[in-house]
């Protein structure tokens, strides 16, 4: 068992989201759901983060930003797409400015459905992401014990 999934740090970015999923992500970090007691921090710096939490669909202006943040993160990294919009475009997939979900730009590891996704589902998704993170670390041939 490695130390990597013990205290994952998140970087959160709102692509064209309506904010519903974003305030639920923030609600996970505040009292009642409070994942900070497990060591999960919402850090603003992509170079310090393990998990990239994205909400919202992708439009023309967002593509460069999402790619930029993803490229700056260190391996191993996990991408969690939260909400129906991040998965496939949601209600807005037929809009002229929406090219689809986040997986049109970067590879996604975990999809959390919902509109807006509930905090319980988000925490579940992040925990699944931790398993993926550990698997990726193991693939590199290093398993810290």
């Amino acid at each position: 068992m490695s130390f990597l999934p013990k205290s994952p740090w998140l970087v959160h970015y709102d692509a064209s989201s309506c904010n519903g999923c974003d305030i639920e992500v923030l609600a996970c970090l505040t009292p009642v759901y409070d994942v900070e007691r497990f060591g999960v921090l919402n850090i603003g710096n992509p170079k310090h983060a393990d998990i990239f939490v994205v909400t919202g669909s992708v439009n023309e202006q967002n593509k460069a930003v999402i790619k930029n943040i993803y490229d700056q993160m260190a391996e191993p990294k996990v991408v969690v797409a939260i909400g129906a919009c991040a998965a496939s475009g949601g209600v807005f997939r037929e809009c002229y400015n929406v090219s689809g979900g986040v997986d049109t730009v970067i590879p996604v590891d975990v999809y959390v459905p919902g509109c807006a996704a509930r905090p319980e589902a988000i925490i579940d998704g992040v925990v699944l992401g931790l398993g993926v993170l550990e698997a990726k670390y193991g693939e590199k041939g290093k398993v810290a014990s």
Binding site: S16, N59, F92
Partner: peptide
């Protein structure tokens, strides 16, 4: 960065369904 152009969806959703789209302008 968040421009989705949802006002154009009136052409594809009838007036009862459009309520669900307008609700999702902002959470």
């Amino acid at each position: 960065f968040i421009h989705r152009g949802l006002e154009k969806l009136v052409e594809k959703r009838d007036f009862q369904e459009m309520a669900f789209v307008i609700e999702r302008i902002c959470g």
